[in-house]
């Protein structure tokens, strides 16, 4: 579904991704784990068009999307939940969701999707009219995910959904990610919480200082010594 081939991404003179290749198949949850500054978020931003790769190709459903504008990529069916949630805090929960469907013209289906999201995240229904800046961190994360789903993506990019959340909330969020996948959305998940990420993912990539150093089935990686030592607390 998504094929990334040897991309190089720079911030000014600093190279953040060095020849990264990666593949996501339809219906999968693929996770990308790695330490701070490894290039995980950069990769997602490049896929969603917020950054442009200098070299390399990105194909989504057979079409090349590398270097295309963000709105073209959203239209093609990729939604990005950016790191740190980034909800529109002076807007109500509902207005945030409406903006998620900004590019859609099928108003009836948008209304249905909103109801569907209220089913997945009942707390958002309760807070429907509340300003989203007044929500708790976990609720904001749910809103950010709900907002992204409003675009009816085929592929959802999740950037550190567990960041700064209480352990119980992290569980809820990961449970919802599995639910979203069951409804037919493919997921590319970036996480620092490697343990949780590997437990729900099908496949995983480990990224270190801009290189993919390891990849494979998530359950194999959970057992790999290298991963255990670096990311799972050496159990």
């Amino acid at each position: 579904m998504l094929t990334i081939n040897e991309i190089n991404v720079f911030y000014g003179n600093i190279q953040a991704l060095k020849g990264v290749s990666l593949e996501v198949n339809e219906g999968e949850i693929v996770t990308l784990i790695g330490a701070n500054g490894a290039g995980k978020s950069t990769l997602l931003k490049t896929v969603s068009g917020l950054l442009k790769p200098k070299q390399g190709t990105i194909e989504f459903q057979g079409k090349t999307i590398a270097g295309k504008a963000a709105q073209t990529i959203v239209k093609a069916g990729i939604s990005h939940v950016p790191e740190g949630r980034r909800v529109f805090s002076n807007m109500s929960v509902e207005e945030n969701l409406d903006l998620g469907a900004y590019l859609r013209k099928d108003h009836k289906a948008v209304a249905e999707d909103k109801e569907r999201i209220f089913k997945i995240f009942p707390i958002l229904l309760e807070r429907r009219k509340q300003l989203s800046g007044t929500l708790s961190g976990g609720e904001q994360q749910m809103l950010a995910m709900g907002r992204a789903i409003m675009a009816r993506p085929k592929l959802l990019l999740l950037d550190e959904p567990s960041m700064g959340l209480a352990p119980l909330m992290v569980k809820t969020i990961f449970h919802t990610i599995e639910e979203i996948r069951k409804e037919g959305t493919t997921i590319l998940l970036v996480e620092q919480n490697a343990h949780m990420a590997l437990s729900i993912a099908d496949r995983a990539y480990v990224i270190e200082t801009g290189h993919v150093v390891l990849s494979g089935l998530a359950k194999d990686l959970q057992e790999a010594e290298q991963v255990k030592a670096a990311y799972l607390g050496g159990l």
Binding site: S48, G49, L50, A69, A70, Q71, I73, V74, K75, S79, H80, V81, P82, R86, V87, F88, S89, N90, M91, E95, D98, L99, G100, Y102, L103, A144, R147, A148, A151
Partner: peptide
């Protein structure tokens, strides 16, 4: 209008607005 909401989204968070597909 829809355009106004897009502008407000830009004010609130430009990166998120970008990610929503707002030009």
């Amino acid at each position: 209008s829809r355009h106004g909401r897009a502008c407000i989204a830009v004010r609130e968070d430009e990166i998120a607005a970008d990610a929503m597909g707002i030009n």
